[in-house]
Simulated assay, not measured.
Amino acid sequence: MANQNSDISALRREYVAEGLHKADLRDDPFEQFQSWFDKALIAHPDDATSMTLATADSEGRPGARIVLLKHFDNHGFCWFTDFRSEKGQHLEQNPYAEIMFYWYGLERQVRIRGPVEKLEYAFGERYFNARPIGSRLSAAVSHQSSPVDSRATLEKAVSEMSAAHEDGNIRCPETWGGYRLVPERFEFWQGRENRLHDRFVFSLDDGKWQVDRLQP
């Protein structure tokens, strides 16, 4: 039973940022994202790339988790993971997802939805080899999302692999690499006073981006 003294329904915050107007939006949602992302990097450089990745399995059962954006351009938004993970299994069954950025302080949220494709192995390999040695070791020994009897088992596996690769030359596993979400829909949300938030959605219509304001 919840503590009677912790009534979270009474918690409030007020949004006081300036508004978002249609006339201020870029015609291209990628350019609009870049503009907001640049400001997020200045405001919160250690957290600007954090994004919620929402996937669903073949029966529509959802899963969501925080991952880090590692690359984006006009082709889409990329991240890296173990293909055998829950998200990897979901995307194998249902290659469609949504990512969401929330930048606290700027009172901004961006949702991006679309099909997901695997990146070429070489793309993932380049990023893998650029990671710190500890991150490469962890990725190489872990079968992400699978049960393990203890942390000690994982630490032993890392130690053994480290000893076997003293030169630091750890090959990127075939089971590890990148995904790219190819946007079909962007939503830009700006928090406003009295919860009368500004929301604009970009959706593809015959190859062109159409912009609509949404009610909050």
Rank of each mutant, 00 (worst) to 15 (best):
W176D: 05
D205P: 03
H143Y: 08
E18Y: 05
Q93K: 15
F33H: 00
K87F: 03
S35N: 12
T81W: 02
N5K: 15
R199I: 00
G191Y: 04
Q4C: 06
E107T: 02
H165N: 13
L214M: 10
D28V: 04
A43N: 11
N194M: 12
H143T: 11
A130H: 06
R180T: 12
V16F: 04
C78M: 11
L69C: 15
A139H: 05
A139F: 08
E160A: 08
Y104H: 10
G124R: 03
E187F: 00
D149V: 06
V201M: 13
M1Q: 01
T52Y: 13
F101M: 01
T153C: 06
R61W: 10
E155R: 05
H71K: 08
T175E: 12
N129T: 12
G88F: 09
S150V: 08
N129D: 14
D7K: 13
W36N: 02
D82Q: 06
F186Y: 05
W79Y: 05
D28F: 08
R131S: 06
L41A: 05
L91N: 06
Y179T: 06
L196N: 05
I42R: 12
Y102H: 15
A139R: 07
Q34P: 00
R13T: 14
W209H: 04
V158S: 03
R199L: 01
E31M: 07
E18C: 02
A164P: 07
A157Q: 11
